[in-house]
Design a protein around this nucleic acid. Structure first.
Length: 251
DNA sequence: CGCTGCCAAAAGGCGCAAAT
DNA sequence: ATTTGCGCCTTTTGGCAGCG
C-alpha cells in the first residue's frame, strides 16, 4: 500500500488491476480495473494502491506536461473560453468508466515498458495526441477545463491553506509554490501568521492530531503516523515522546 | 525604503538500519 | 510492532544585492 501526496503535472491514470483509491475532500474514491481518472496538477490528495484478492495492483499513467499542452491548445481551441474563476469552479479530477477507447490506448502503450531504449519523441507525441483526442471525445468540456488551465498558483491565504493541508507531507518549497510564494517569502509570511517556523509548527500540529486520533479514536500508532503526515514510524515515535513525554504506544 | 530572491553556515529534523 | 542510534540533508538563520 503505497502513499503519495501530490501530482505535479496533469495525469491520466488507467487502472489495469487491483484497487486505486483517492482520499480527497474528506471522501474516499475507489477505482477498479478498466477505469481511469484524469487529475489536475498540483492538487494535494492521498493515494492508495492495493491488490484486489489475488491480483496485484497495476496501473499506467500518462503525464501531460505544460509545453505539450501549450502547443496543443494553440492549434486546438478549448471547448469554450474559460475565465479564471470558471477553471477553479470545475472539478479537480474526472473519473471515467470502462471505455473501449481507453482500453485500446493503454493496451497499445503497455508494451512500451518492455522496450529498453528510449522511445522516439515522435511516438510519444503521437500517443499524447491520441490521448487528447479520446479524452475530448468522451468529455470535452471537462478535460479542457483541466488541461487548458495554465494559471500558476496565486498568492492565497497562507494560514487557511496550512490549517487544511498540514497532514500532507510535502516539503516547504512546494508549500510555498502552492500558496503562490517563493520559499523565502513563504517562510517570512509563515512567521507573521503563526509566529513560528514552518517546521516547528508542522511537527506540533501533526503530533497534536496524532494524539487526538490515538486517544479519542483508539487507533494504533502504525495506523496514524502516515495519516497525519509522517513518513516513517521511527521518527514519529521519537518526536511524540519528545513532545508529550510518553510513548505513543502507551495510549 | 520595503519587499523579494539568493546564498552560506549552522542546527536539528528526518529516515534508514538495528535493537528490543 | 515500536523504539533507539546515528549520519545525512532539509530547514533555519541572517546577511546581501536587485527591483519597484
Amino acid at each position: 500500500m503505497a502513499s503519495e501526496y501530490l501530482v505535479p503535472e496533469h495525469a491520466l491514470t488507467y487502472v489495469i488491476s487491483g484497487e486505486f483509491g483517492i482520499n480527497k475532500f474528506g471522501k474516499k474514491y475507489t477505482y477498479g480495473a478498466g477505469e481511469s481518472v484524469l487529475f489536475k496538477r498540483n492538487e494535494l490528495a492521498r493515494f492508495t494502491k492495493d491488490p484486489l484478492g489475488e491480483t496485484p495492483f497495476s496501473c499506467v499513467t500518462i503525464f501531460f506536461m505544460q509545453p505539450f499542452l501549450q502547443k496543443y491548445y494553440t492549434t486546438n481551441a478549448p471547448a469554450q473560453a474559460f475565465l479564471k474563476e470558471e477553471h477553479e469552479s470545475y472539478l479537480k479530477m474526472i473519473p471515467f468508466c470502462t471505455d473501449p477507447l481507453f482500453e485500446s490506448l493503454f493496451n497499445s502503450v503497455l508494451p512500451y515498458y518492455k522496450y529498453s531504449n528510449p522511445l522516439p519523441q515522435e511516438l510519444i507525441s503521437m500517443k499524447l495526441m491520441e490521448a487528447m483526442t479520446i479524452l475530448r471525445t468522451i468529455n470535452k468540456k471537462g478535460t479542457d477545463s483541466i488541461l487548458s488551465d495554465f494559471a500558476e498558483p496565486g498568492k492565497i491565504d497562507l494560514g487557511d491553506f496550512m490549517e487544511k493541508n498540514f497532514t500532507y507531507n510535502v516539503n516547504l518549497e512546494r508549500f510555498g509554490y502552492l500558496t503562490g510564494r517563493s520559499l523565502a517569502t513563504f517562510k517570512r509570511d509563515f512567521q507573521k501568521t503563526f509566529n513560528t517556523t514552518p517546521q516547528k509548527w508542522l511537527l506540533q500540529k501533526r503530533l497534536e492530531q496524532a494524539h487526538f486520533l490515538l486517544t479519542t479514536n483508539k487507533k494504533k500508532p502504525s495506523e496514524v503516523y502516515l495519516e497525519v503526515g509522517f513518513e516513517n514510524l521511527s521518527h514519529f515515535s521519537a518526536s511524540f515522546k519528545q513532545m508529550f513525554g510518553y510513548n505513543a504506544s502507551s495510549l
